[in-house]
């Protein structure tokens, strides 16, 4: 479904992604784990067209999207729930969700989807008219995911959804991710919390300083000694 081939990304003179290869198949949960600054976030930003690679290419359903603009990529069904939530802080919960459906014109279906998001995260329904910037961290993450769902993505990319959240909320969010995957949404998950990520993922990649250092099934990575030492806390 998604294929990165030898992607090189620079920020000015800084060489950030060094020829990485990543592939995601339809229906999978794939995770990219790695330390801070390894290039995970940049990988997602590159896929969604916020950053354009200097070398290599990206394919989505067989079509090259390397130089596509973000809005076309969203149109194709890739939705990116960015690191740090990146909500529209002075808008209401409802407005944030509506913006998630920005490219859609099917008013009735949008309403249904909004109800669906509210049913996944009932707290958001209660807070519909509240300004997003005043929500708690956990509620903001739920809103960010809900907003990403409003475009009815085929591929959902999540960047550190567990960051800074209480364990109970993290559990809830990971349950939702699994549930979405069960409904046929393909997931690309970037996480520092490697334990949780590998638990729900089918396959995984380990990133180190801009390169993929290791890849395999979630089970293989789980049992890999180096991964254990570096990312799984023992």
């Amino acid at each position: 479904m998604l294929e990165l081939k030898g992607v090189d990304v620079y920020y000015g003179k800084l060489y950030i992604l060094k020829g990485i290869n990543v592939s995601v198949k339809k229906g999978e949960i794939v995770t990219i784990i790695g330390a801070n600054g390894a290039g995970k976030t940049t990988t997602l930003r590159t896929i969604s067209g916020l950053v354009h690679p200097r070398g290599g290419s990206i394919y989505y359903n067989g079509k090259e999207i390397t130089r596509e603009s973000s809005n076309n990529i969203v149109k194709m069904g890739i939705s990116h729930c960015p690191e740090g939530r990146q909500l529209f802080p002075y808008m209401t919960v409802r407005e944030n969700l509506l913006l998630g459906a920005y490219l859609r014109n099917d008013t009735n279906a949008i309403k249904e989807d909004m109800e669906w998001v509210y049913s996944i995260f009932p707290i958001l329904a209660e807070r519909q008219k509240q300004i997003a910037g005043t929500l708690s961290g956990g509620e903001q993450e739920m809103l960010a995911i809900g907003r990403a769902l409003m475009s009815r993505p085929k591929l959902l990319m999540l960047d550190e959804p567990s960051l800074g959240l209480a364990p109970i909320v993290v559990d809830k969010i990971f349950d939702v991710i699994k549930e979405l995957n069960g409904k046929g949404v393909t997931i690309l998950l970037v996480e520092q919390n490697a334990n949780m990520a590998l638990e729900i993922a089918h396959r995984g990649y380990v990133m180190e300083t801009g390169k993929i250092s290791l890849q395999g099934s979630a089970r293989e990575l789980f049992e890999d000694e180096a991964v254990k030492r570096a990312y799984l806390g023992g």
Partner: peptide, 9 residues
């Protein structure tokens, strides 16, 4: 950036 991710041109 978030606006771009919503598909806003």
């Amino acid at each position: 950036d978030a606006s771009r991710l919503m598909g806003i041109n």
